Amino acid sequence: MAQIVQDIYRGWEITIRCSGAIARAGQPASYTAIASAELLPGVNPEDWVDSRMQVMNTSGRPFASGKACVAALLAEARQLIDALRR
């Protein structure tokens, strides 16, 4: 079952979907996530280099927990939003 986390950051809504893989014998489960960031209504798109929906993922990096996976991708989404600001 996927864990869904939503966050508002500088006029963007970030949605992260984190899912865990089934653990194999002798190995812990790993987690991956995909995030989307969408500009909220009423925010001026001219304030941003690219105001289109942004999508990012963990690119196959394994994480020991869903919490660590979400925290890493949330930090990366915020960095991307900061970089898009004019």
Rank of each mutant, 00 (worst) to 15 (best):
L74E: 03
A75S: 14
I34G: 00
S19D: 07
P28R: 05
A75T: 13
Q79P: 03
M53A: 12
S59L: 14
I4M: 13
D82G: 07
R85M: 10
L84P: 05
S36C: 08
A72Q: 08
V70D: 04
L40E: 03
A2F: 10
A25M: 07
G26A: 06
I22H: 09
E38L: 14
Y9C: 01
S30T: 15
C69V: 03
V70Y: 02
V70L: 01
E76S: 11
W12F: 09
V43F: 11
R78N: 02
V5G: 01
Q79K: 12
R17D: 09
E46S: 12
A75K: 14
M56R: 13
A77M: 10
E13Y: 05
M1S: 10
E13L: 15
V55Q: 09
F63P: 01
A23M: 09
F63I: 06
A72I: 04
M53W: 06
I8Q: 08
A29L: 09
A29D: 05
S65D: 04
A33Y: 02
A33W: 00
R24A: 11
R10I: 03
A72C: 11
E38Y: 05
R10K: 15
L39R: 01
I14K: 04
A64H: 11
N57T: 08
S51K: 08
A68S: 13
A77I: 04
T15V: 13
I81L: 10
A23C: 02
P62R: 03
V5M: 01
I34K: 08
L73D: 05
A35N: 11
S19R: 08
W12A: 01
C69G: 01
M1H: 10
G11Q: 14
I8K: 11
P41N: 10
C18G: 02
E13T: 12
F63G: 08
A72N: 06
S19A: 13
D7T: 11
S59R: 15
A72M: 02
P41K: 09
D47V: 06
